[in-house]
């Protein structure tokens, strides 16, 4: 809104200084924990014990990163977090693809092929976004056990698809709702079928919302802890669970530098996505918060 104020309304110099001062202080508040995590991951254990948390590493070493990736002990196995990182990738990729595709066709049907009760169906899918997952945790554990999927990545994929449909449907529904229905009508008169209209008319215009959905689902699923901890402990655990096990294990010397390096590995995929396409992530978060 300030962009619309006339030039005379600009605040005086003193006020400007206060504003920038506050912005800088807050920037420090938001950057500091991450900064400390980053520098610690390049320090030796000795330097951590003796030095200042905020100081840059005197003798930067990538040994903690190598240890975190390949040799540190998580639980009983000492092969680093690489296997768990791979678990997370194997879980995230199919779960994101499947939930995004389902969300796209759901949004298409719910906006362009409405049927009696479409609101109720959408409302029920939407509410599913907001339930506390604790209320489905026990039955899910029982069902995954029965299906033989307990403790597997496939089981986690199923879980994330099921509880990701609500959001992906919400995103595509709101996007397609603004897509001109006249185009669908024109295509019908032109003789295009249900799937042809989707593939030829809607999908080519869906780039932005696909990016939003993929990034949102990727971030959400990668960062999940509750489902991972409940259904995939041990070797099938995703990255977040492994990180927590590593950090909170009470045996031996605490290798803080390795912990921080492992945390960086857990943070990097979503951080990279944020740096590359942060605006889309924000759009997704907003769409989940303030619909339409």
């Amino acid at each position: 809104m300030a962009a619309d104020l006339p030039a005379g309304a600009r605040s005086p110099i003193a006020a400007r200084i206060v504003i920038y001062g506050l912005l800088l202080i807050f920037a420090v508040f938001y950057l500091l924990p991450f900064f400390v995590m980053l520098v610690t991951s390049f320090k030796t254990l000795d330097e951590i014990q003796d030095g200042n948390m905020l100081a840059l590493p005197k003798n930067p070493t990538i040994a903690p990163w190598l240890a975190a990736w390949g040799t540190t002990c998580v639980g009983l196995t000492c092969q680093g977090i690489k296997g768990f990182f791979a678990n997370s990738i194997l879980m995230v990729v199919p779960a994101v693809i499947i939930s995004t595709m389902l969300g796209a066709v759901n949004g298409y049907v719910l906006t362009k092929w409405r049927f009696p009760g479409h609101r109720l169906v959408f409302g029920m899918m939407l509410f599913a976004c907001f339930i506390p997952f604790q209320s489905v945790l026990i039955p899910m554990a029982l069902v995954l056990g029965t299906l033989g999927l307990a403790g597997t990545t496939a089981g986690l994929v199923l879980v994330h698809v099921v509880y990701g449909i609500g959001f992906s449907t919400l995103f595509f529904r709101n996007y397609y709702d603004a897509f001109p229905t006249e185009l669908v009508r024109a295509a019908q008169i032109d003789g295009a079928s249900f799937f042809q209209i989707f593939r030829r008319i809607l999908l080519p215009s869906s780039g932005p919302i696909i990016v939003v959905t993929v990034i949102f689902q990727f971030t959400n699923i990668w960062n999940d802890f509750l489902f991972g901890a409940s259904f995939a402990s041990g070797d099938a655990a995703p990255m977040t669970v492994a990180l927590n096990n590593l950090v909170s294990s009470s045996t031996g010397v605490k290798e803080y530098n390795v912990h921080m390096a492992a945390a960086m590995f857990a943070a990097l995929p979503t951080l990279i996505v944020y740096v590359v396409a942060g605006q889309y992530l924000v759009r997704g978060l907003m769409a989940g918060a303030v619909k339409g």
Partner: peptide, 19 residues
């Protein structure tokens, strides 16, 4: 079905496929 009526329609918004 609309496609079988052998009709053509010009819409208010023109409904041109943007892609």
């Amino acid at each position: 079905h609309p496609s079988k009526r052998d009709i053509a329609m010009v819409f208010q918004s023109y409904a041109l496929y943007p892609n």
